[in-house]
Write a protein that binds this DNA or RNA. Structure first.
Lengths: 191, 191, 191, 191
DNA sequence: AATGAATGAGCGTTCATTCAT
DNA sequence: TATGAATGAACGCTCATTCAT
């Protein structure tokens, strides 16, 4: 009788364990030996669950997309007006700052390691990109995807700026500025 | 003495020649052989001008900081009011979009390859960071560095989003949105 | 006791199932996973029946030797004169060309993977070598083993030349030439 | 000023140094580390001269083909009649037995490691095959390539049988038998 | 100042074998 | 008996760096 495990769930656990290490050092700077050590298994076992280092990385990106969709939905569930939603989103980002900063690193790496001519055609990219678009549009209750993309872009800028920094206060401060900007913009231009 | 000046200038030329290649493929994905081929010299000669691959990269980051300071100053020189300065800055970014996007890649790589615990203490980082702070503050004619940082952060977000994309129109559109946001914010909160 | 007979027979069946795969890809290019998949059992089960990959391979060589002895005896049973026996042997080889070519591959592999200093002392080699010697001597009805070895050597050359080729006609043609050569030789030198 | 070397010639020397090791242990059983140690250089230097282990192997096969063409031509140069040529060829084979046996191993390995469906289309194979065909046809002074191929096939059989054996006497004896067979065949069937 | 052959530690990956179930 | 997840040494290969010329 073989050892019974929920392969699917175990693989997700392994992905989560890789997250911190990959975010801290970057895809290219983490070896498979380091990864397997972080996972507490042998390199061979790692290759039992993932066909390659690259595949592991892409599965991680997908997994993060899945988690974020849930998280953002939950964060803005109680808010009804647009200003309230913006504030809720801001609080969520501040609360999980460390997580989102790490994720930005992962996402940068993903861009970097993709062939520029293929990144837009990459099914993983397309899927996750649409996921975020959908999540942010829903979270803010906006009809216009373009503004949603804009907001997410700004957030990414903030996250990227936080790389290597541990100044939590400055991050909150800048999120606050962003919320004020959005509010001022909506007051002036409507919606 | 003149010999030294030539050396200095030659090294800057070499750095500029590396820029496109490093931005296109990323620091970790470019070999020293590829770099020296791009430069049109041997690997040995490259090590004559730069003590290591990493040092070459850091010198490139510094060089870019120097160039940008000049460029931003020139772009906003004619404008006198804050809205004019914002618009001038926006035009400059849109005009040199390709350059700034490549630079964002370089900058990401620099963060990534630095030890997180050392990045803030890294003299190269400190110098270039202050340079940008100063440049953007001067360009916008703001007394408050915090807002300058905020603007630059937002711009970085836009640049990062352009990675792998060639949609020039979307970039201009989002810069336009950013200018409107800033304007609305300043109208409401003053300065 | 009957249990043991079944085990023995089951192991022979397993060996036969491996034959094609090993001949097609070569010992070193077939993994134990591929073998066990071909056998329709798990790797663990395979190791229950064979102590190692190498042992499985050696048992296959022995099994083939056993089968050939029977086959060659049957092929030349009806013939009474030496020319008739030669012709019968030739027909048998042509008829089972694909089988013998595969076997040649197996046999090459066996030599290759043996330590050169030990191959002559290898009991598996000694046993099978004597088996072939005996089989060919009996088949041709020759008193002199040296000529039997010579014939078998020539046949091996033909088989080896067929590796990777699917030109069935050429094989038959060359077997025909071999038969003529043998006949001419026996006519001139007697026996 | 770079170290001046005749790259082409040095590469040939390296190939020759690999010959014994590859023949003794087989392509798949020799590691790149073992090869580079045999060559007296580092693995990196080996990859400076050969793009891959497989390429090194194929270049060795080509180099052997080149050497053999010269050797066979020289061996039969003085002989004028067909029997004399056959005898000369036989002496050449006996004299360089060890070399030809090793070469047979290399050749077997080459077949084994080629995709069966591609071996006939492999340019290396085609070139060397034609080389041998031409060499043996010229050496024996035969108009008919088919008989040349036949002779070479028989010789290959003998060589293969010598794998792992060091019985030089038996080899000479069998070459002698081959010469007698050929002579008897030509006497009976002409040419 | 300049060359490029040479180094060798370290990479991502494979696979014969083991063993808890 | 039988399973297949797990192991880890070893593989082919890369590349930042050095150094004899």
């Amino acid at each position: 009788m073989p050892k019974v495990v929920n392969q699917e769930q175990y693989r997700r656990e392994l992905l989560c364990k890789c997250f911190d290490l990959l975010a801290a050092k970057g895809y290219a700077n983490v070896t498979t030996r380091q990864l397997s050590q972080e996972l507490g298994i042998s390199t061979g076992a790692m290759y039992h669950y993932f066909p390659s280092k690259k595949a592991l990385f892409e599965q991680l990106v997908q997994e993060l997309g899945r988690q974020d969709e849930v998280m953002l939905k939950a964060a803005t569930e109680g808010a009804t007006t647009v200003p309230e939603r913006i504030a809720s989103l801001g609080r969520c980002l501040i609360e999980h700052e460390a997580y989102f900063v790490k994720q930005a690193v992962i996402w940068m790496d993903f861009y970097q390691h993709s062939d520029p001519r293929e990144v837009l055609g990459n099914p993983v990219f397309q899927q996750v990109d649409q996921q975020y678009q959908r999540a942010i549009t829903t979270a803010l209750g906006l009809a216009e995807p373009k503004v949603a993309r804009f907001v997410w872009t700004l957030v990414n800028g903030l996250l990227v700026e936080q790389l290597g920094s541990e100044d939590c206060f400055e991050f909150a401060e800048q999120i606050d500025l962003l919320v004020k900007m959005l509010t001022a913009y909506f007051e002036k231009h409507g919606m």
